[in-house]
Amino acid sequence: MKLRPSAFWVCAAAVLAGGLALTEVLNNDYYFNALYVILQGMLMAVAWNILGGFTGYVNFGSAAFFAVGAYTSIFLDKYFGHVLPLPVLIAAAAAVCALIGLAVGYLSLRLKGVYFSIATLAMAIVFATLISNWRYMGGARGAYILTPDKHLWFHSYIQMLFMAMLLLTVAAVAISRSLVASRLGRGLAAIRDDEVAAECAGVPTLRLKLVSTTVMGALMGVAGAPYPFFVTFVDPSSAFSLFVAVNAIAMPMIGGTAHWLGPVIGALLVGGAQQVITVTVSSELNILFVGLMLVIFVSVAPQGIVGLAQKFWARRRAP
């Protein structure tokens, strides 16, 4: 499972080139819609895993970061009269959500384990209530966004969004991979295994937790920022949907939380299956599917697919 740095970057470049090639070859926008949703899920899953998988703090409030990212774009877009380019909106959303992530990190100073998880869930509802009562952002009725006419050299706007999301997701995977491989990542793993012991051994637990919650928040904000342009209508119940939160948890748990590859595999599998189920059966059934997969995996294979694969290889190597 070890990938040399050069090999990783070659893979990343190949994925991006593949994405570009797709925009030339395929001209059915439906496929880009579906791929965008899968990539958005993957970005959220990778972000969730930076805190949940590496340090063991379960964040139930992913939807709050996502929605704050989306609403940051809506606000800036509306305030400056629809002139700001997408990268600026994404950067702003990342900054806002990084700050919220930092605050959540300080929360972890007092709240461990379960209490931290419940507090993040509570935070999501508080944000949802604030935005539902904020008239400027459309309140509970929601806000409409106009899709800009320009889309660089792409054939349609959704193709450009897809490419942007692909680039962001690859970047997030690279960040997550370098985090887990670094000294910092070993510190995070020490926190996951035993926070008190880590603290005693001189691991700067608070600083590490702050780094990981801030990066997580920023990446989730990034995932949410292009969302308004993707759906063109955002209301609190869709932006703060628990479905976003459950996907962000289920994908890494199914793929395997300890490895950076886990959320990627989980997202491909779950996200792909969701698209197929939504088209062939119904969208309710796809939520049921995620719930069932999550329950089955955490009960039977808590290490996820990556864990199963590692076990399989270890057994083959040493018979």
Binding site: G52, G291, M293, V295
Partner: peptide, 13 residues
């Protein structure tokens, strides 16, 4: 702690 939470979260769904 971690898996149990996810278990009940999934059960809720």
């Amino acid at each position: 702690s971690l898996s149990g939470l996810a278990f009940f979260f999934g059960l809720m769904f």
